[in-house]
Structure formats: C-alpha cells, structure tokens
Write a protein that binds this DNA or RNA. Structure first.
Length: 401
DNA sequence: GAACAGAAAAC
DNA sequence: CCTCCTTTCTGTTC
C-alpha cells in the first residue's frame, strides 16, 4: 500500500482503551478481590448509600451491574453474592496509574523498532503521534513505525499490550484501523484484553453493518431520531443521502454523519491542547430553593476546589459560570464575563454568589439538587507570580483543613 | 463578533 | 430519586 513516491495511501491508527479501568486499578492494588464482583462507586453524600456505579469488573457485570446505575440497585443485584466488593472511587490513584501507562505508551513507541529493520539500522523514528482522550483512553498513529503495514502494526500492538501488562498490570483493548472513527469502534468489539483490526479495504463494509449508536458522536437522542427516519446502520445512514441528512441535522453534523456512514474520517491524531474550561459539581445535602446560609459551606468548598484547579494548571480566568441541576434533572446555566482576566479568589467567590442569588431570585420555585461552577475563557498565567500562587495555594489549603 | 444559554455527547 | 468533567455546536441577542 506504499506508493513509489513514499507517500502513504492510508494511515494506521490504534485506539487503546484500558479495560474496566477504575475497577481494574482496584484489582491490581488488592489482588485478593480479583475473583469477586468489584464495583467502584461515586457516593453523592446525600444519604449513606446514595450515588452511582462508576465502573465495575466483568464478574459484577454478569449480575447486571453497569456504569451509571444507582448503588442501591447494584447492591440489590449482588444481594445473593456474599463476596461482592463495593469501593469508593479513588480518582487520584487512578490518575497516577493512568499517567504511568500513558507515559509508558509514549516511551515504548518512541523507542520501538520493528525487529526486521532494527538489526540493519538502529534509528528509532520519532514520528508517533499521541492523543490523550481520557484517563483510560488514547489514540496513537503508527503509520510509519509500522511501515504502512497492518501486519506489522498488529505485531507492534501486541508487543505494546504485553509491555503495558508487564509494567502496570493493566489489560487493555485495542482497535487498529485507518482512522480514529473506526479504531475507536473496533477497540470496543472484543473486550476485555482484545484486539480488533480493520484494514482500509474493509472499512466501508465494517461501518455499513455497525449500528449507528456505535458511532462516536451519536448518542441516545440522535439514535432515536435516526430510528424514526428508518436509519439503524452506518450503511443506511449514508444511503439516506447527504441532502436529506442536512435537512434533518444541519450541514455540519449531517456531513459528519454521512461520512461516518461510509467509514470516512480524516481527523488527525493530535496532542491535546490546554483545557478550555475547568469546573466542579457537587450534590447538595438537601434540595434548596433560596440562597440560604445552609449551603455557604458547600459553596465555599467548590469555589476553592475549582480555584485550586486553576492554580494547579496555572491559568487565569475571565468567565465564571454556575450550573444548577434541579430535582427534576433539568439544568440551568448562567455565566458572566469579568472585565479582564482574573486570578483572584474573592472575585471568583463573590461572582458565583451574585450569579447564584440572581438566578434563584428569577426562579423562585425551583428545587436545586446539584450545584456546579465552572471557569472558562482561560488564559495562561504567563509564568510569573509564582510566589503569589504559592501564597494563594496556602490560603486555600489551610482554610480547607 | 462577543456574550450567553442550552443541547448533546462522552467519560 | 441518579456522578462527575469537559467539549463542541447551535441559536439568540446585542
């Protein structure tokens, strides 16, 4: 598939997805739970058991436990299983584990030489592109590393998999394909510890048989809408025709859908830029309707927590917003821009308070269940004022015990 | 073109 | 009766 002028006719992209990540981290940390159902929970703090399942291992999945269901229901499903393990999520630990694995992936690829060529010239090609998606997920492009050859990419991927397993204990699932769209769908097909390869000439056929809800960017709403239009698969999606899709979805999204249905995706694997917004959301102990001193503590807590994130990432902010999730699960967002970028905690805190007050006054009848704040329009803090950061950080740390 | 709100998606 | 974090897009208004 390589042309004589040395330009490629295709890319080779691997999507790497660590299996049942949070729960697997816990299994590695304490091997004695490995053959029991393991459920990692996010406790909301509202009542003792309120919250949802974040991730669970495959043993727990056999009993119908899965991400997103309430802890209460998960416990009911595992009621007969005396050995079931419920753990609070330890994001810090998972982040470290993720960092290690991601670093390992980069290093491995930077130094990787195919056995066939390495004995002749040892010259690692530093041409691997890496894209971080989330704690448990990334893309890498290995087109040149694998010499445009999917068989070589498969060998590389298997070596990488072994290495990840050896160094971190983690298993992962991989999809190897000519673009990110198909690589991502493919990695999900054989789990856990699986590998699925879709070569360029299979791409169109592969996607034509996929259900539309497997396509990234198509969620529940769009799936339902497509179903009403009689579209269930990628093939039916592109057969529907670009123009009629535009009528239903607008030009931009329709074009994405139409191309996806044919397995076409030219998005490059690119390293992630800095965050565009940072935020935090909490569940209140009790629903509130008016501003009451009852939530002062919580308000201060999330403001500090988000402010600390800004300090950690060394950014200053101009836009400050709140998010209210009501007892009926409707959301309201309100935000305001400051005159200039700020790095001042009290400006943040008083802005949040005034936006919140104003909003609650405008909706006297709502019941707020969860409260979030976010900072956006972020800017790099130019590096200076490190001392001031230090002092601010200390204020935050000492105030929040 | 900026500012803001909301929807949708994915994690 | 149910978490949390972030991105991107769209529509509206000024």
């Amino acid at each position: 598939m390589q042309r004589s002028d040395n330009t490629s006719t295709h890319r080779i992209i691997i999507h790497i997805d660590f299996d049942y990540f949070f729960a697997q981290c816990e299994e590695i940390k304490r091997p004695e739970i490995k053959d029991k159902p393991v459920v990692v929970c996010i406790y909301s703090g509202r009542t003792k058991e309120s919250g949802v399942v974040s991730t669970c291992n495959y043993i727990a999945r056999k009993y119908g436990v899965k991400s997103g269901i309430s802890i209460k229901i998960a416990k009911a499903k595992l009621a007969q299983v005396s050995q079931a393990v419920f753990l609070p999520s330890d994001i810090k630990h998972y982040s470290e584990k993720s960092d290690n694995a991601m670093t390992l992936i980069r290093d491995f690829l930077d130094n990787y030489s195919l056995s066939a060529t390495s004995s002749i010239v040892f010259q690692p090609i530093k041409c691997v592109k890496f894209e971080y998606i989330g704690l448990d997920e990334c893309f890498v492009e290995v087109t040149e590393k694998a010499d445009f050859d999917f068989a070589k990419a498969k060998e590389l991927a298997n070596n990488l998999k072994k290495q990840i397993r050896k160094e971190t204990g983690l298993t992962c699932s991989m999809g190897i394909a000519p673009n990110k769209l198909i690589a991502k769908i493919a990695s999900d097909l054989q789990k856990p510890d699986g590998m699925t390869i879709v070569e360029p000439d299979e791409a169109k056929n592969f996607i034509s048989k996929c259900n539309v809800d497997k396509i990234p960017g198509i969620g529940p709403k769009t799936t339902a809408k497509l179903l009403e239009m009689g579209i269930r698969t990628g093939g039916e999606l592109s057969a529907f025709g670009l123009f009629r899709l535009i009528d239903a979805f607008g030009k931009k999204y329709a074009t994405y859908l139409y191309k996806s249905g044919q397995g076409i995706d030219n998005e490059p694997v690119k390293s992630r830029g800095s965050a565009k917004q940072i935020g935090r959301i909490i569940t209140l102990k009790r629903d509130i309707s008016q501003t009451t001193s009852e939530i002062d503590g919580e308000l201060e807590y999330i403001c500090k927590s988000v402010y600390k994130m800004a300090l950690d990432q060394n950014v200053i902010f101009r836009n400050i917003g709140i998010l209210l999730i009501l007892n009926n699960l409707d959301n309201i967002t309100r935000s305001k821009s400051l005159k200039t970028h700020s790095r001042d905690f009290h400006e943040l805190y008083s802005s949040v308070k005034s936006i919140l007050n104003e909003t609650l006054n405008n909706y006297p009848n709502i019941k707020v269940r969860r409260l979030g704040i976010k900072l956006s329009d972020l800017k790099d803090n130019e590096g200076q004022n490190t001392m001031l950061n230090f002092i601010n950080n200390n204020i935050i740390n000492t105030k929040t015990k």
